[in-house]
Simulated scan of single mutants.
Amino acid sequence: MSKTEQPNNSEKEIVAVTKHGQATIPKRFREKLGIEAPGKVLFRETEDGEVIVEQVRSPSEMRGFA
């Protein structure tokens, strides 16, 4: 596969964005990433321009990591 070809095996889902810029993360992605409500997520852009969504752990979940 050349660098310009993209694999077509990724999961995709279209969601609506409200006039306030809010979008609902689909349940299957929340479950897969371990995102609970209320909670926070991190949007990160790679050098290739891809946007990654990651779970942000709560302070209570981070206890013992230091």
Results as ranks from 00 to 15, higher is better:
T4L: 15
R57F: 02
G64Q: 01
M62W: 09
P38Y: 00
P7Q: 05
I25Q: 00
I14M: 08
R28A: 10
S60N: 09
F29N: 00
E11S: 14
T24C: 10
E13G: 08
R63E: 06
M1A: 12
E45G: 06
E47L: 15
P38W: 01
E47R: 13
R30N: 05
E5V: 07
S60C: 09
S10E: 09
K19L: 08
P7M: 04
I14Q: 13
K3R: 14
I35G: 00
A37C: 07
L33Q: 01
K12R: 07
R44C: 14
K32W: 14
S58F: 00
F43Y: 11
A16L: 11
V41W: 00
E5H: 08
F43M: 14
S58T: 04
L42V: 06
S10G: 13
V51C: 06
E31Y: 14
G49H: 07
I35K: 02
P7Y: 10
V17C: 09
E50M: 13
H20N: 14
Q22E: 11
G34E: 00
P7L: 03
Q55Y: 09
E5G: 07
E36K: 15
M1V: 12
P38S: 04
V41Y: 01
R44N: 12
G64H: 04
L42E: 09
V51R: 05
R28M: 08
V15P: 02
R44L: 12
A23Q: 10
A16T: 10
E61P: 01
K40Q: 11
E36H: 15
T24R: 10
F29W: 02
D48A: 02
E47A: 13
G21C: 00
V15T: 12
K12E: 12
F29A: 00
G49A: 04
E11N: 05
V17I: 13
F65P: 05
K40L: 15
R28W: 15
E11G: 10
E5A: 10
G64T: 04
A66I: 06
E11V: 07
V51W: 09
K40M: 06
V51S: 08
V56M: 07
E54L: 06
R44A: 13
R30A: 03
K19E: 05
E61C: 03
N8G: 14
T18P: 04
E45A: 10
R30G: 00
I25R: 02
R30P: 00
E5M: 15
G39T: 08
P59T: 03
E54F: 05
T18S: 14
T18R: 09
K3W: 11
V51G: 07
E47V: 09
T24Y: 11
F29M: 03
T46W: 01
K19C: 09
I25E: 06
E31Q: 13
E61I: 05
E45S: 10
L42F: 02
E50F: 08
R44T: 07
E47Y: 05
D48S: 05
N8K: 12
E36T: 15
V56H: 03
G21M: 04
F29H: 01
G21H: 07
V41C: 04
